[in-house]
Simulated assay, not measured.
Amino acid sequence: MQYKLLLVEDDEDLAVHLSKYLQIRGFFTGLAGDGQRARQCLAEGPYDLVLVDIMMPGEDGFSLAAHLKKSYPQLPFLFLSARNQKEDILKGLGLGADDYMIKPFDAEELVLRIHNILRRSIGVIAEMERYDLGTYQFRFNDLMLIGTSGEKVLTEKEGKLLKMLCLRKNHLLNRAEVLHELWGEPDFFNGRSLDVFISRLRKYLSDDPGIRIESIRGVGFRLREV
């Protein structure tokens, strides 16, 4: 498995060289030069770990860390900073960072620390039900649908319906089974409600033309990924 790292660093030379080294060591590495760009990257696709500088133009690393803990509570991150004062280190760790490394640092040591963090978080990651749908990722545990245009929090019933479709991806999902599972009674009105929910999911997934929910009249639905 190739882990995806997001390196948030405004020093372009350091960012490029460190990114190349991490790629040599087997990681996919995305780059962001400031906090705003980092937020955009996180919204566009899932990452397994974020490396955060503190002193950056605009939003600093501490503010970005607070955003990470609020919006991506399961996502581990560590600080890479020239700020070596005890109060800065304690503040960083207090914000929930998994580690704090002081510049200049040894790149090989950084890789070892990254692996340690990923090993610690793998249990949490394994428990997170995640489904990849083209350019989307659906996290059932927190009902989060993440796509290129941002994030959408689903209702509980929308999430359960999308999970059923994901589990049967490219195969028929029987309409009566969905009604029994989610509504308890396959009557006319519940059937109309199901059609409304299917329409909503189609709208949520509309940014990716390779993903579609097909209706098989009177029988059920099929989530297709082409």
Rank of each mutant, 00 (worst) to 15 (best):
D53Q: 05
K69I: 08
A65I: 01
D99T: 13
L42E: 09
A97W: 03
A82E: 13
D60F: 05
E59N: 07
R83D: 00
S81W: 09
I102V: 15
P76H: 09
N84F: 03
P46T: 08
G45C: 06
G45W: 00
L78H: 01
F77S: 02
V50P: 02
K91F: 01
Q85C: 09
E44P: 06
L93G: 01
K70A: 15
F79P: 03
Q85W: 05
L75E: 06
K70D: 15
G96K: 10
P76K: 04
S81V: 11
G58I: 00
Y100I: 07
E87K: 00
N84V: 07
L64V: 03
A43C: 09
I89E: 03
Q85Y: 10
M55T: 10
L95E: 01
K69C: 12
F62K: 02
I102Y: 07
L68F: 12
E44G: 13
L75D: 12
D60G: 01
G45K: 11
G61A: 05
N84S: 15
Q74M: 15
F105A: 08
L42S: 08
K69Y: 02
P73Q: 13
P46L: 12
S63N: 04
I102M: 09
D60L: 02
H67L: 13
D53S: 03
G61K: 00
A97Q: 05
R83F: 05
V50I: 09
V50L: 07
K86S: 10
I89V: 15
K70R: 15
K70N: 14
A82W: 02
S71K: 13
L75C: 11
L90G: 01
Y72T: 05
V50E: 09
L68K: 01
G45L: 05
F79I: 04
D98R: 15
P104C: 12
V52I: 04
F62Q: 02
G61N: 09
A43L: 14
A97C: 11
E87P: 02
S71M: 12
P57S: 04
